[in-house]
């Protein structure tokens, strides 16, 4: 219940931020739509099951985002070179990447990180490993993926049970 109310307050703050107008009618409409959203969320039972709470430390997460941005820049450059090369030299492959995350949120973060870096895409998620497609042999670098995996897991284990 507390989380439902927190979500409602967050949604209303978002409404105020996006509208920027403070007329009674608009604020009333905002309250109404937040209430409807909360009712739907309650009916869906979103907060009854715990999918994995965002207990990750903000500092570690921000550091990870910075590291990820650099990785994305590097692989963007690599894939751009492949596209602009005079003759296409693709060595496509599908392979399994082992994962060590416990929570669903950690797995989502890792899979999205793999997909966000051009050159590698998560195709299928299974228990303990992701089936990944790589564009070239350079992109299919198991060491880099293992490093990403351990960094995501490090965020996750910040607070013990994530």
């Amino acid at each position: 219940m507390v989380r439902l109310l927190a979500m409602g307050l967050g949604l209303f703050a978002l409404w105020l931020l996006l509208s920027g107008l403070f007329k009674p009618l608009l604020i009333g409409l905002g309250v109404l739509s937040c209430a409807i959203t909360m009712a739907i969320a309650h009916r869906m039972g979103i907060f009854k099951r715990t999918v994995g709470t965002p207990r990750q430390s903000v500092v570690k997460f921000t550091t990870y985002l910075g590291w990820l941005a650099i990785e994305i820049a590097k692989s963007n450059w690599a894939v751009s070179k492949v596209i602009l090369a005079r003759s296409l030299s693709l060595q496509q492959s599908l392979f399994n990447v082992p994962t060590s995350q416990q929570s669903d949120l950690g797995k989502v973060l890792f899979a999205n990180s793999i997909t966000l870096t051009p050159g590698t895409i998560t195709v299928e998620t299974e228990d303990g490993s992701f089936l990944t497609h790589a564009l070239t042999d350079d992109a299919a670098d198991m060491d880099a993926l293992a490093e990403m995996d351990s960094r995501v897991t490090a965020i996750e284990h910040q607070d013990g049970d994530a």
Binding site: V79, S80, I83, L116, T117, P118, I121
Partner: peptide, 12 residues
């Protein structure tokens, strides 16, 4: 392979 080209548009 086109997936990866689309990923460039999406990210960079």
């Amino acid at each position: 392979s086109r997936l990866h080209a689309a990923a460039i548009v999406d990210s960079a």
